[in-house]
Design a protein around this nucleic acid. Structure first.
Length: 101
DNA sequence: AAGATGACAATAC
DNA sequence: CGTATTGCCATCT
């Protein structure tokens, strides 16, 4: 298995995100133990299997923006709304951010 | 080994 | 609110 221990940390952090809340890539990377590695977090999610039990859809870009392309982004948005997350335009209502104000 | 890549972030204008 | 620029980190070619 070519996966490093780093990925496991990110997976674990992602599992800790409660339904109805969202996290930014930066926050996720920070929780995984690599603050500033927001880019790396996105790379990991990108390689994530579609049948993964991980709530990848709870991960958004800074400010609650959807970073995924058209179809994937629409899918993510739909999943989030199904969990009770409210969208404002193309962004998530900042009220749902994990560890938010 | 060096450079290019990317589901990012923050700042500047 | 939009685009442009810079910084950051790990992986791939």
């Amino acid at each position: 298995m070519p996966e490093s221990n780093f990925n496991t940390a990110l997976y674990t952090a992602l599992m800790l995100i409660p339904a109805g809340s969202v996290v930014t890539y930066g926050q996720l990377a920070h929780l995984a133990g690599r603050p500033g590695a927001a880019r790396w977090a996105g790379a990991v999610l990108r390689t994530l299997p579609e049948h993964s039990s991980l709530p990848w859809h709870r991960v958004v870009a800074a400010g609650g923006r959807i970073a995924l392309p058209n179809e994937a982004g629409a899918e993510q948005r739909r999943r989030l709304e199904a969990e009770g997350v409210v969208f404002r335009g193309n962004k998530v209502s900042l009220n749902h951010l994990f560890e938010s104000p």
